[in-house]
Amino acid sequence: MARHGSLLSRSGLTPGQLAMHAFLLLCAFAMLFPFYWMLLTAFRPSQEVFSPTFHWLPQTFVGLDNFRAAFGKAPLLRFMLNGAVICAGILAVQLLTAIPCAYALAKYEFRGRGLLFALVLFALCVPVQVPALPLYMTLAFTGTLDSYFALMLPFFLSVFAIFLFRQVFRSFPDDVIHAARLDGMGEMEILWRIVVPSAGPAIAAFAVFSVTAHWNDLYWPLVVVTSPELAPPPLGMMYFNDPDIGSSFGTLMAAATLLTAPLTVLFLFAQRHFVQGVTMTGVK
C-alpha cells in the first residue's frame, strides 16, 4: 500500500492533484451534461421523455428512429450544405481581401495608412447588427434578398482578419522580402508565395474562427432568408423548434445532434487551431 502511494506521488498524483482532478471532473460533467442529455434523448423513445423518473440510459433503445424522423421533418442535410457553402464563400472572400490589405498595412508606407488602420480598429468594435438595416434595405431594393449572396455580404470584409494578419505579417522579416525582390519576384508574388505560406498557422486559426462564427450565426440568416432551402443550420434549428411542427423531443434532439456535430468534430480534430484562434483574438 505504501509502495502504491509512493508510486502515485512519483507520477505526480499527490492528494492535492487528486482533489483537483475530482473537482474538475465534476465541472466537466456539468459542462458536458447537455451534450450527454442531447444524445441520450436522441436515442430513446418519446414516451420516456415524459416519465417522471430520471434514467441515465434509454430504457428502450430506438436506434436511429429519431434521426430518421428528423430527416423526414426537415431537409437537415440541406441546412448543413447551406452552412458549408456560406462558410466557404465567406472565408474565401475574407482571405482574398484581408490578406493583401493586411500586408499593405504591415509592410508599405502610403498616404492614408494611418486612417485606414484607424477605420479597421473602429470597425473591429462594430457588430453586424449595426449596419444590418441599410444592408437589408439595399438587398431588398436590388431584389437580392433570400440568396446565398445576401447571407454572405455583410461578412465579406473581416476587419478582424486584417488586424490579425497585419500583426502576423509585421513580424515577417524584411530581409526575406528584400531577398525576394533581389531575386526578381513581383510584389504580388512575394505576398502569395513567400509571406502567406509562412502565415499558415494564423490563417488556419482564423479559418476556424470564421467558420465557427458563421456556421453558428442566427441573426443575419433570420433577417434575410425566408426560404427554408437556403437556411443555414441555426435557422433550420429554429424551424424545428417551431411549435407548429410539434415538439417531439426525440427528433428535436436528433436534429440538434446532427447540426452541432460538424463543428464539434472539426473542433476535436483541430483543437490546437481553435485554442490558438481564441488566444489570438483575445490577447493580441
Binding site: P34, M38, W215, P234, M237, L266
Partner: peptide
C-alpha cells in the same frame, strides 16, 4: 477540450437542449 466544447457548439441547437 471538455470546457471549450460548449464554445464551439451551435448555440441554437444547444439552446433547445437547455430548454429541455
Amino acid at each position: 477540450v471538455a470546457f471549450f466544447l460548449p464554445v464551439t457548439s451551435t448555440l441554437i441547437a444547444m439552446a433547445t437542449v437547455w430548454k429541455y
